[in-house]
């Protein structure tokens, strides 16, 4: 069934947009209801586009009303528990911190840049699919993705993350001799 097919990813997408776990399921439910009502066999192939269009619109609407500061995972707490003089553990924590820093940078992007990043990099939507969901030209989407990547790079470098280490599939913060 369509709901089962899209549900988990949609809830998580709404969460990434709003930063609110408590309302992500309500947003998804609302998007399903709106997308399914006019749904029939003729327009079945357009369900995904229509559903995500509604999901993004509803997420932003709710986010504008209720957005709270993005919750920061308890990385420090985790570090205190796990730092057992083990470089692998330090590496893992550094990677998690890198992910968190990058997610914060994504969530700080403008609406137009944030949504293309979430659709492209989390939902694996093609440029064409994003253009359909957002009613934009493909060139516009490409341009937004380019700008978003540039801003994300600048933002995380500003916060001390060394982008050159990404090629090692790791985030490493400057000043760490081993990690």
């Amino acid at each position: 069934m369509l709901v089962e097919m899209y549900s988990d990813k949609a809830v998580r997408t709404a969460y990434l947009i709003t930063g609110r776990v408590d309302i992500a399921e309500d947003i998804t439910q609302e998007a399903f209801i709106q997308a399914i009502i006019p749904f029939n066999k003729k327009n079945a192939q357009f369900f995904k586009t229509r559903f995500y269009k509604i999901l993004m619109r509803t997420s932003w609407k709710v986010a504008a009303r209720t957005k709270e500061p993005i919750q920061v995972d308890s990385i420090e707490r985790e570090a205190n528990h796990n730092l057992a003089d083990c470089f692998d553990v330090i590496d893992t924590i550094a990677t998690k911190q890198g992910y968190e820093a990058l997610y914060k940078a994504v969530s700080a992007l403008s609406k137009h840049l944030n949504e293309v990043v979430v659709l492209h990099y989390y939902n694996d939507f093609s440029i064409k699919e994003i253009a359909q969901v957002l009613n934009c030209r493909e060139g516009t989407i490409r341009s937004r993705l380019f700008k978003a990547r540039k801003l994300l790079t600048q933002e995380i470098m500003k916060n001390g993350w060394d982008v050159s280490y990404f090629e090692d599939r790791r985030f490493r913060k400057e000043g760490h001799s081993h990690v």
Binding site: L16, Q29, Y99
Partner: peptide, 30 residues
Amino acid sequence: MFERMITNSLISKAQTINPRQDMADRVKKS
């Protein structure tokens, strides 16, 4: 590679929540 890290970052954040598995029922009831 940077693009892969963006994906990993979003997946990592998204996986911190566990959506309930009753969405189909919720939609049906509505």
